[in-house]
Design a protein around this nucleic acid. Sequence first.
DNA 1: CCGTATCCTTACCGATACTG
DNA 2: CAGTATCGGTAAGGATACGG
Lengths: 132, 132
Amino acid sequence: MAGTKQATTTVSGPEFACPVSPVVDIVFSRWTTPVLWALHTYGRQRFVELERRIGTITPKVLTQRLRQLERDGLVVRTYHPEVPPRVEYEISELGRSLAPLFAHLTEWGAAHLGRVEEARRAYDADPARPRP
Amino acid sequence: MAGTKQATTTVSGPEFACPVSPVVDIVFSRWTTPVLWALHTYGRQRFVELERRIGTITPKVLTQRLRQLERDGLVVRTYHPEVPPRVEYEISELGRSLAPLFAHLTEWGAAHLGRVEEARRAYDADPARPRP
DNA sequence: CCGTATCCTTACCGATACTG
DNA sequence: CAGTATCGGTAAGGATACGG
């Protein structure tokens, strides 16, 4: 999805087409949920820990997401001026307020994801659907 | 966002990095929430109505999203073989099960979006942050 | 260790034109 | 009306290498 970008580059995206879109833009842009999840689940941690935890994310993208989340006030970055430098990230109070939302999302997934898979199989198997 | 694409093109995206990601991929990819919202709020309607309601979406993209949502079982498409042809879209039972989720999202936005804006202003005004 | 800088690829999206 | 076809632009994302 588009992400929060720097400010407001998009002039007429989906952002204003429905009331949930602004929230989606902030919370559910690419890679943000894994980051928030790791932070929420395993607590305050360093850059490399996050990187390893998430697995396939590149440092560049991880930095981007963390900056965005920091700017939006969902994550707190703490810089310790030592050698070697140490930086820690943690969920903010505001970020923590998303926890029930994430819980509901997970629940919905557990309850209905099977249905989605099933629907996809049915759709793909139907010879009467519009073909590419 | 990436979207659900046709099946599973991405080999190592965020999809498996946290339990909410699969749901996000299905429900919160670009333009899906405005479409679902319009369908949920105004009920069963035709292609052009949706197009006009959402405002800035192009027919091509609207078709893509509708197909994806149909495939995932969140939306039901009904084709009436008349002249001129008539097609109607409506939320499925499965799609309707997302309603409480959307409500919570909207609530969260109403309660906390101001905080996010505030955090952004503070961040952008801070001269000590990492500069581009 | 914690990032940045650079290059490059591709997915996505808008615009436009056209068909059953 | 309800789409499909094609083209092209743009920006996010990955790979890699390097710096403080």
